[in-house]
C-alpha cells in the first residue's frame, strides 16, 4: 500500500508539469487543463498496478489524458465550438522582451490547428521521438513528420513576416 502511494507521489511530482502543459495545449484553457490533469492522475492511481515500466509512464499518462479530453467532448457537445482567439487571457505581464516574444509566439502556436500543435508539443516539451508520437496519436510516422514540418514552417513564416510589429511601442 505504502509503496503504491510512494510511486504515485513520485509520478505526480515528476510529471504533473509536463502533463499540465500538454493538457493546456490540448484545450487552451487553464481550468480545463487542470481538471484534465486531475482526472488523469485519478485514473492513473486506479490503474497504477498496470504500469509496469516506469519509463513508459509519461506516454501512458498522456494516453490517459487524451482519452479524458475526448470524453470531455462526448459529455459536453456545446463545448465543441472552435476555440477563439479572444478567449486566451493574457494574464502574464510581459515586462521583458523575451517573455513578450514568448507570449506572442504562444498565441501563434495556439492558432495552429491542433493536428499540428499536438505533435509539436509532444516533440518539444515531451521529448518524444517521431515513432513514439506516431504510436501515441495513432498515426503513421510519415504523417507525424509532415505535420511537424508544417508546424515549424508556419511558425517560421509567421515570425519572419511580422518581426516589425512586435516589440516595444511607446505610443
Amino acid at each position: 500500500m505504502m509503496t503504491k502511494q510512494v510511486r504515485y507521489e513520485a509520478l505526480v511530482k515528476a510529471l504533473h508539469g509536463d502533463l499540465y502543459r500538454y493538457a493546456y495545449w490540448l484545450c487552451h484553457e487553464k481550468q480545463v487543463a487542470e481538471d484534465l490533469v486531475q482526472e488523469t492522475f485519478l485514473r492513473a492511481w486506479r490503474a497504477l498496478d498496470s504500469l509496469k515500466d516506469e519509463k513508459a509512464a509519461k506516454s501512458w499518462l498522456i494516453t490517459i489524458l487524451r482519452r479524458e479530453n475526448a470524453r470531455r467532448f462526448e459529455r459536453k457537445r456545446f463545448d465543441m465550438s472552435e476555440y477563439e482567439e479572444s478567449t486566451i487571457t493574457d494574464t502574464q505581464s510581459a515586462s521583458h522582451e523575451q517573455t513578450m516574444e514568448s507570449h506572442w509566439l504562444r498565441d501563434k502556436i495556439a492558432q495552429l490547428p491542433n493536428e499540428y500543435s499536438e505533435p509539436l508539443v509532444l516533440q518539444v516539451l515531451g521529448g518524444f521521438s517521431g515513432e513514439e508520437i506516431a504510436v501515441m496519436l495513432d498515426l503513421n510516422k510519415n504523417t507525424v513528420m509532415t505535420r511537424l514540418f508544417r508546424a515549424r514552417n508556419q511558425l517560421k513564416d509567421i515570425l519572419e513576416s511580422e518581426p516589425a510589429k512586435r516589440g516595444l511601442y511607446n505610443g
Binding site: Y8, E9, V12, K13, H16, G17, Y20, R21, Y24, W25, K30, E34, V37, Q38, F41, L42, W45, Q92, Q98, E101, S102, H103, L105, R106, I109, L120, V121, V124, L125, R152, L155, L159
Partner: peptide, 24 residues
C-alpha cells in the same frame, strides 16, 4: 525551436502537485 520551447512552457499552477496528491 528554442523559442517554441520557451513559448510552450506555460506556467504550471504552483499548488497543482499538492492538489493531485490531496485528491488521491
Amino acid at each position: 525551436d528554442e523559442k517554441i520551447k520557451q513559448a510552450l512552457q506555460v506556467p504550471v499552477p504552483d499548488d497543482l502537485c499538492n492538489k493531485l496528491i490531496l485528491r488521491q
